[in-house]
Nucleic acid binder design. Structure first.
Lengths: 247, 247
DNA sequence: GCAAAAGTGTTTCACTTACACCCATGA
DNA sequence: TCATGGGTGTAAGTGAAACACTTTTGC
């Protein structure tokens, strides 16, 4: 499957459906909102970007849409989301969580589609590897073009969830690599929450969660005092998703 | 449709599906976890109860299950949940919200079923009207029998969500009628959170949210000083579900 | 009057916020 | 040595928790 074929939802012809003429047919699809942090040029604060894929058939032919596609009987919903986003963007997300099931009757012209949407966070080195081409393009999360279906609404909701979750969980780590400085971690928070944070208080807050562990190493090469490198404390989870084991 | 026929998920024969022999077939269903508060006898604290319906076919024939059924092409997911729970329990919930989409491959023997689960809160007077019979029965939420499919897990997750949401939203009001005393509201919190709350501090906390409005009336007939009756302040929503308009 | 819940006042404590200040390094 | 971000210290402010105390009713 090519990237653009995966542009999800009502890919009417994507499967042979002898019964597709029936009026009570409900199609089930999985889509994913993928977030990555991109450093703006010239020392400006980093911002959130996300990849969209071009639709190559009706409805909304030519428009950009979230990557996605039909669920296969042999894969779970999360597996479907993971497979699909890898096929379309060649990304392997650091974090993947179910967002919401969208199922109003009119969200896809001519066909009834229920989309179970996931959201994912990828690290910058992963995002580098993402292929960008004719059929895949990255946009700033809060400056998107018109997307197919209700995908603009979906991205808004995903952004709200990301920002909300940022305040009470440790998902920010999913944007970073193995080792990072506190300034880098703070930049992630500032980029997502869109407000400056006091470095001194930020340090104490994240240290109090025990979610990071100091290493012996320091990051040299900067213009000033070399900051200590930290790593994520594996023993504390990124989020508390309650009694559900995986996602 | 009768109550038991609605006992959701793999009701294999519930729709004529000429293609049901295909191996890539994925069935979409909607189920609902319905919570109501029941006063225990003898002044003991109230507890959470929920209705389950008996399955009348395989798999899990005879076991109790969450009310649910297939999604119709003409109704949204929330409408499907509302219709279904009304058909099976004759309840009209005060609050209805999507919980999660469950879609592991092995959750239903022999068939691939994806269940989008909602959770609902009903008021005590509503719960009275609920029919209880051969095929519908109420159980304490934390003392359930073995349920069909992964429904025990689903209830656990719904309970977690209810308790979590109780701490930062105003959903407790959905358990009460039009007018209520602060003691009644506090009893709801204590029942759901399973811990006693200081009446004085509780009063100040809920008053500070502006979610209630004092009325002139008082509740007489009690053994002691008659407490003031309050009503819910419509201008503040029960929860903040972000940019999504309805649910 | 007495018991008990309704309702008010007050102290304490933990935690956030703001910001002053010292430290260590590259240029 | 100086500019700058790394890192520590500390005082003010905010809000939750604990609990003493007053009020109002039924019996």
């Amino acid at each position: 499957m090519t990237a653009s074929e995966a542009a999800h939802a009502p890919s009417v012809a994507s499967l042979p459906r002898p019964e597709s003429s029936r009026t009570d047919e409900v199609v089930l699809a999985v889509s994913t909102v993928i977030f990555a942090l991109r450093a703006s040029e010239a020392g400006a604060p980093a911002t959130l970007w996300l990849p969209v894929v071009r639709r190559i058939r009706e409805p909304f032919h030519g428009l950009w849409a979230l990557p996605g596609g039909p669920v296969q009987a042999s894969e779970s919903l999360a597996e479907s989301a993971g497979r699909n986003l890898h096929e379309t963007t060649s990304l392997a997300p650091q974090y993947l969580e179910q967002l919401y099931a969208f199922g109003t009757v009119d969200r896809s012209p001519g066909q009834r589609v229920v989309s179970i949407v996931y959201w994912a966070l990828v690290r910058p080195d992963e995002a580098e590897r993402a292929m960008e081409g004719e059929n895949v393009r990255w946009y700033p999360a809060d400056d998107l073009p018109e997307l197919a279906f209700d995908h603009n609404t979906i991205v808004e909701y995903a952004l709200w969830r990301l920002r909300t979750k940022m305040e009470y969980s440790q998902i920010a780590h999913a944007f970073l690599g193995e080792r990072f400085t506190l300034a880098q971690l703070r930049e992630v928070y500032e980029a997502v929450l869109r407000r400056p944070l006091d470095p001194a208080n930020f340090r104490r807050q994240v240290e109090s969660t025990k979610s990071i562990v100091a290493t012996d190493e320091r990051l040299s090469g900067g213009r000033h005092r070399p900051p200590r490198l930290y790593k994520y404390n594996e023993s504390v989870g990124l989020v508390d998703n309650g009694p559900l084991p995986g996602l």
